[in-house]
């Protein structure tokens, strides 16, 4: 009984939403995915002021923030940097996120009325949609997925993909595993490997540039198609 009363009097954060780890070249702040954003900020301040003073004083220390699966807004990011900046010796080097670029991008695609299909498109099967299309599954050799807009495949793209069927040359084809038999964008048809080379296991997307089919890592999508 008494124990509970003591707990109520001291409202210190019991759960660790922020784990601070020291590594060879600085500190890692690991944030939990399962709490409110404000709780993380509060715990940071608490740790700076109370428990971790020793660790946080002295020469400047580079800090890597591991965000987990949380996606934060620009304001929240500002807030975070401001909080950390109260300690002059902490220099934020990187904010890392477990969510891949493709997943982030797919989030956006889902918001922009894409048709989402699940399952495998097998040999002989054809899926055509007028809007952007997101397939959760594989396209097998002999199968075709096509769209008047973009084609996104969260899976292996081994068959034929046709984006911008009605002539949109800005359309793209993206896949977690791009090993197609043929790619088509608007009226352009291209096939590996004589026209473009397939490299290691990267998430990739295909786009047209000056009438040529190009393949790039998914990370460059925002740069090459800023409107997407």
């Amino acid at each position: 009984m008494t124990g509970e009363i003591v707990k109520e009097v001291q409202p210190e954060p019991v759960k660790h939403h922020v784990v601070i780890k020291g590594v060879k070249d600085g500190l890692i702040f690991q944030f939990s995915d399962h709490c409110e954003w404000q709780e993380i900020l509060d715990e940071l301040v608490y740790k700076f002021e109370n428990t971790h003073q020793k660790l946080l004083s002295g020469t400047s220390i580079p800090v890597t923030i591991k965000m987990g699966e949380r996606v934060i807004s620009d304001e929240q990011r500002e807030e975070l940097l401001k909080t950390i900046a109260t300690n002059e010796n902490l220099v934020v080097r990187a904010i890392e996120n477990n969510i891949t670029q493709l997943e982030l991008h797919i989030n956006e695609v889902m918001l922009s009325n894409a048709k989402i299909i699940r399952g495998t498109i097998r040999s002989g099967q054809v899926e055509h949609h007028k809007t952007n299309v997101l397939l959760i599954g594989d396209v097998n050799p002999g199968g075709t997925i096509s769209s008047d807009g973009d084609v996104y495949v969260l899976g292996s793209m081994r068959g034929i993909a046709h984006a911008g069927v009605s002539g949109n040359e800005m359309a793209i084809i993206a896949a977690s595993h791009l090993r197609p038999t043929q790619l088509r964008i608007a009226n352009m048809i291209s096939r590996p490997p004589d026209e473009w080379s397939v490299e290691d296991v990267h998430m990739e997307f295909a786009f047209l540039q000056e009438g040529q089919m190009n393949i790039e890592k998914i990370q460059l999508l925002k740069r090459l198609r800023p409107d997407r």
Partner: peptide
């Protein structure tokens, strides 16, 4: 394997 894939699609 290609034909088997086609068959699996038709069976589904």
């Amino acid at each position: 394997v290609r034909d088997a894939d086609r068959i699996v699609g038709l069976l589904e």
